[in-house]
């Protein structure tokens, strides 16, 4: 192995295991297990659900998840920074409401509306950061409270009923068909790749990730940990508002009541995602795999005729399963650490 190559490996895979040949690598159940389960799920549904294996199902599954993936990325960014952000779904819903309301009732041009909503989300994230990092309230409590407050205030301002009538150009843009999939999904992938790149390959991203892993070590290495923690909450709010804007573009309306439906899959996706690609760590690629796995599962069940309650059962089960797996991975890591030469 040349020096250069080993450096690359070390960056990409800090666990820095010896590189296997590609075929053996694909058989690494620990890293790719969820992908195989996903493929099995697809194969199973295709056999037993006649309508499942079709281009339209594929498009629905691929295209419908833009907002869910962005919201999950928001959760992951917060988790990587060492924080819990429970306000993501509410921020998303309120951002959607604000886009519609400002654009229709207040007749703001759509461009300014979007900028204003993003700015407001940044301010909200900064408020969460101030309370959690400066004052020292655990972020899980801070965001539970602030998210509920935000939702309530938005309902008081714009009402809790679904609202439509947003600028058609937003809808057209977000749903623009590019090679059979809406533009939204490409935006989602671009956001994912951007986050991955920053976290893995820039000094700031690495400082961010490792501050989240062990704040004390990072602080003593000269990292401004408070700044990193704040950034994680601000970024998660920002991403949540982007999800809200995409949501309006996709559905053409704001539906405040949908917020609650996004939170649990987001955490399920984040934790389930941490069991693949890079087991034991929240990671961007894992989010995409986990969300598509989850939505495949739910879509198949719906095609089988189960609706409504089955979502909760499936997502709840997946979240518990994911955290159990995470725990088992951590355990096996620890014992293999003790064995090391």
């Amino acid at each position: 192995m040349s020096q250069n190559q080993s450096a690359e490996v070390a960056i990409a895979i800090p666990e820095s295991r010896p590189r296997l040949n590609p075929l053996a690598g694909l058989l690494d159940i620990e890293r790719f297990g969820l992908i195989y389960v996903w493929l099995l799920l697809i194969a199973g549904y295709s056999l037993f659900v006649p309508s499942f294996f079709s281009v339209s199902t594929f498009q629905i599954v691929l295209g419908s998840q833009a907002t869910q993936i962005v919201i999950t990325l928001a959760v992951v960014v917060a988790l990587l920074g060492g924080e819990f952000d429970l306000s993501v779904a509410n921020v998303m819903a309120v951002a959607a409401t604000a886009v519609v309301t400002l654009n229709t009732d207040y007749a703001w041009p759509i461009g300014w509306t979007i900028l204003a909503v993003i700015a407001a989300a940044l301010a909200f994230g900064a408020l969460n950061a101030f309370i959690s990092v400066r004052i020292g309230v655990p972020s899980i409590i801070t965001t539970l409270g602030s998210g509920t407050l935000l939702m309530g205030a938005a309902n008081g301002w714009a009402g809790s009923a679904p609202r439509a009538g947003v600028d058609q150009r937003l809808i057209d843009l977000v749903s623009l068909d590019v090679l059979g999939a809406p533009l939204a999904i490409y935006v989602t992938f671009a956001i994912g790749i951007g986050i991955y790149y920053v976290l893995e390959h820039t000094p700031a991203g690495r400082a961010f990730v490792f501050s989240g892993q062990n704040a004390e070590v990072a602080r003593l290495a000269g990292i401004r940990v408070a700044r990193m923690r704040s950034a994680s909450l601000i970024w998660s709010s920002l991403l949540s508002s982007v999800a809200g804007i995409l949501l309006v573009g996709i559905t053409g309306a704001s539906v405040p009541a949908v917020a609650s439906g996004y939170l649990l899959p987001a955490f399920a996706g984040a934790f389930l995602g941490s069991t693949v690609i890079r087991p034991g760590r929240f990671n961007v690629a894992g989010v995409f795999i986990a969300i598509y796995f989850l939505v495949t599962g739910v879509t198949g069940l719906q095609l089988l005729g189960y609706t409504g309650w089955v979502n909760d059962v499936f997502y709840g089960f997946s979240l518990v399963l994911a955290v159990v797996l995470t725990q088992l991975i951590a355990k096996s890591r620890r014992s293999s650490g003790a064995r090391a030469p």
Binding site: Q3, N4, A10, I11, H201, T202, P203, R206, F210, I223
Partner: peptide, 14 residues
């Protein structure tokens, strides 16, 4: 860590 040399934006591992 925290003082990585960079090439452009990216950590310069070599």
């Amino acid at each position: 860590f925290g003082r990585e040399p960079v090439r452009g934006w990216v950590v310069d591992g070599r």
